[in-house]
Nucleic acid binder design. Structure first.
Lengths: 103, 103
DNA sequence: TATATTTTTGCCAAAAATTGTCAAGAAAAT
DNA sequence: ATTTTCTTGACAATTTTTGGCAAAAATATA
């Protein structure tokens, strides 16, 4: 299974599989339907509360949604960046290093 | 050589090696000295123009500074995130995939 | 110690980015 | 053709980021 699917595409896929209209999911998420439309097309950001609700509602894995939410953001920032590989490698080192420091 | 050093620490190290006061480097970067102080302690973000100037001024590698700038930001966002490893792995896949699409 | 210099801090206002909402139009389904 | 769903663009409200001042704190120098 591919992890490349964006969070927006994932939400849309889950929603359409249940033949649920935007309007209804938007209501469940307590946002305007236009906002949800944009989220599904990756023009707006979802947030933690939203993916939690989506996970519960559709029996999806919250962690997978979270990974998509965060990786979308990073990928978007790096898409036009020539040094993206090194950036991610160094970021990984830093995260590991600073997590250890915290303990 | 470790890549874990933050951009702020790097700038400070380069500056102090030349015994240059904050005030002077701040002037060269066209920002307030208090802002530079915060940048060196990673309380504020530097930007591309700033690292370009720093690279020229100190004969440092612009690309390395850029990598630090971007990786600092990502690492900071992920430091409190349990799923950081997966997030970075997926982000890498996405960047690769979407870069190909662009071509 | 006193003085000068450098660095840090807190605060504020301006600018930029994000968010939420509405209403109208386009697309799709019936 | 009518109804329903989805998309788009615009707007204000809110939040976040930025830049700069001015005073306090820290450091260096005489």
């Amino acid at each position: 299974m591919s992890n490349i699917e964006t969070l927006g595409a994932t939400i849309r896929r889950l929603r359409e599989a249940r033949e649920m209209p935007l309007r209804k999911l938007a209501a469940a998420l307590d946002i305007d339907q236009s906002t949800l439309s944009k989220i599904e097309r990756n023009e707006r950001n979802a947030n933690d509360a939203m993916i939690k609700t989506v996970a519960e509602l559709f029996g999806a894995d919250y962690k997978e949604l979270k990974i998509k939410l965060l990786s979308d953001k990073i990928a978007y920032d790096l898409i036009n960046e020539a040094l993206s590989d090194e950036v991610l490698r160094v970021a990984e080192e830093k995260v590991e290093y600073f997590k250890k420091l915290k303990k």
